[in-house]
Amino acid sequence: MQPILAPYVRTFVDSLTGLPVLPSSVWLIGSQASGRAQAGSDTDLLVFGSSGFLAAVRAALPQPSGIDCLVVVNGNDFEEPWQHKRGALARWNWVLKSATEAQYEGTKFIADEPDGTLGQFETRQERAIRIWPS
């Protein structure tokens, strides 16, 4: 079952999949995919594509508001197109469960104090849902 995406998220996915260099797939991750989203939660996307696709995103699309987008360029290494955050799926223990669902280990900072200065990181199993192609 496909998740219901906010119109601005659907518009951004349409922009990604309308570029001259196509991604191979677009996945919803984070709180939206795991069912923990609250009012004001952003939308996290993991997009599989080539280095050419990553370059096309950087050249053609402005950084979206309310969406975090990571592009996996070689099946493992990912980058955020606008802020140059980097990482590797291997560190997430990314596992495909089916053609439309995956599981990975996510890390979240849990604040102990209201000001958020003290707390700890928690690792938990997260769900990912392929939203394109559907």
Rank of each mutant, 00 (worst) to 15 (best):
Q2S: 05
P3N: 08
I4N: 08
I4K: 08
P7W: 01
P7I: 09
Y8P: 00
T11N: 03
T11E: 08
T11C: 01
F12M: 05
S15I: 06
L16M: 04
L16T: 00
T17I: 15
G18R: 03
V21L: 05
V21P: 01
L22P: 04
S24V: 12
S25M: 12
V26R: 02
V26W: 03
W27I: 09
I29D: 03
G30F: 08
S31R: 02
S31M: 08
Q32D: 07
S34M: 03
S34F: 12
G35P: 05
G35A: 09
G35S: 10
R36M: 02
R36K: 13
A37Q: 15
Q38H: 14
A39W: 08
A39T: 12
S41E: 09
S41G: 07
S41Y: 11
D42K: 04
D42N: 04
D42Q: 09
T43E: 04
T43Q: 00
L45E: 00
L46P: 02
G49F: 06
S51W: 06
S51Y: 11
S51M: 10
F53E: 01
F53A: 07
L54F: 08
A56K: 06
V57M: 07
V57T: 07
A59P: 03
A59N: 11
A59R: 12
A59H: 10
L61D: 08
L61N: 01
L61R: 10
Q63D: 12
S65L: 11
G66W: 12
I67P: 09
I67T: 10
D68M: 03
D68G: 13
C69S: 07
C69P: 04
L70N: 15
V71I: 15
V71T: 08
V72K: 10
V73T: 15
V73Y: 09
N74E: 14
G75E: 10
N76W: 07
N76C: 09
F78V: 06
E79I: 04
E79F: 14
E80W: 04
E80P: 04
P81L: 05
P81K: 04
H84S: 14
H84F: 10
H84W: 11
K85C: 07
K85V: 05
R86N: 08
A88R: 14
L89Y: 09
L89G: 09
R91C: 04
W92I: 02
W92S: 01
W92P: 00
W94F: 15
V95W: 03
V95T: 12
V95E: 13
K97S: 12
K97I: 15
S98I: 06
S98P: 04
A99F: 01
T100V: 12
T100L: 11
T100F: 11
E101R: 15
A102M: 10
A102G: 11
Q103R: 13
Y104T: 01
E105I: 11
T107F: 02
F109V: 01
F109L: 05
I110R: 13
A111Q: 14
D112A: 13
D112P: 06
E113G: 01
E113L: 13
P114T: 12
P114S: 12
P114L: 14
G116N: 12
G116H: 11
T117G: 02
T117E: 14
G119S: 08
Q120K: 13
F121E: 06
F121H: 09
F121D: 03
E122M: 06
T123H: 04
R124E: 07
Q125M: 05
E126D: 05
R127T: 15
A128Q: 04
A128G: 15
R130F: 07
I131Q: 02
I131W: 00
P133I: 13
P133V: 10
